[in-house]
Design a protein around this nucleic acid. Sequence first.
DNA 1: AACTGAAGCAACCGCAGAGCC
DNA 2: GGGCTCTGCGGTTGCTTCAGT
Length: 279
Amino acid sequence: MVRTPCRDENGMKKGTWTPEEDRKLIAYVTRYGCWNWRQLPRFAGLSRCGKSCRLRWMNYLRPNIKRGNYSQEEEETIIKLHQQLGNRWSAIAAQLPGRTDNEIKNHWHTNLKKRMNNKHYKSSSSSSSSSSSSSSSVTQTDDQETPNCSGLVELAVDQLTKSATILPNADETADHLQVPQTDHDHLDNIFQLSSPQPSSSEVSSLTTDNAPVVLSSMNNDDWVNYVEEDNVISSMEAYADVQFGNDFWTEPFLADTSYIPCGLLTPSMDSEFFYPLFD
DNA sequence: AACTGAAGCAACCGCAGAGCC
DNA sequence: GGGCTCTGCGGTTGCTTCAGT
C-alpha cells in the first residue's frame, strides 16, 4: 500500500503493485502456475523481478489468504509457537492456515511483541495482577475474521500445479516444458467460460452456499442487476474468472461490473470440477 | 486546520540452502 | 568439490494512515 512506483537499474519496476499488475499476475499464475519465478514476469507481461512477483503472490494474491483481524486462538498459537520456534516465521505460518509469514511477522512486531513485553512487565512488577493482564492481552481482538476465499482460484491453482511445468506462449516454449495435450484439455474444461443467458429460475438456484461463482463478461446488465437486487453474489467471497477477448484474469468479484455467471465451483461438493450452470 | 510522531504493513534487501551441471 | 541459478526466509525500510496536540 505504500511505496511509490519507481524502477531499479535494470528497468524493473519497484514499489506498490497496481491493480493491473495484480490482475496480470493472478491471471498468469492461476492459469499456468509458478513454473519459474525468475522467468515468469516476462511471460506474464510484468516489469517486475521474479522475487517481487513471488512475494506479491505468496503474501497477497494467492488463494485462501486470510486477511484482517487475528482471532484469539490465532494469537495464542503465534505466541506459543514463537516461544517454541523463535523468529522462524515460515514455520509459524505453516501452523496458521491462510496466514503468511510476512503478515505474522508484522503482527508480532506491531502487536504481540508489545503485549508480551507489557505482560512480562506487569507480571514482574505485580504478580497479583498477572491473571487479568494475560487475559486482556489477547482477548481484545475483534474476532471478525475475513472468510477464506477458497474456490475458483484455489482449485485452479491446485489443478494447475498438478499439471507439471507449464509455459504459456507456444512461440517461446521449449518442448520439454510444454503441457501435455491432455492437461490442456483438462484445463480448458476447468476454464470453460461461455454460456447462454440464464433464466430467472436458474438464477434462483444460485444460493450463497454455492460460492464462488465463475463468471464471464458478456456485458449483460440485466443479469448483473438481478444478482445485485437479490443480493446473491455480493454477499459472497467470490472470485470472477474474467475474460475479455483473449485477455484473461481472475479477480475478486466486483458487484458494479458486468459479468454473467456461467458455472459454479463448489468446494463442498465431492467433485473438484467445474459445474456449468447452463447448457 | 495544521502539524507531528506513532503505528501499521506492503515491499525490498541480503543471505542461506537446495539443486543442478 | 566448485560454481551457478533459483527459491525461500528473516530483517529492515519507508510510505500511508491515524491519533494526539
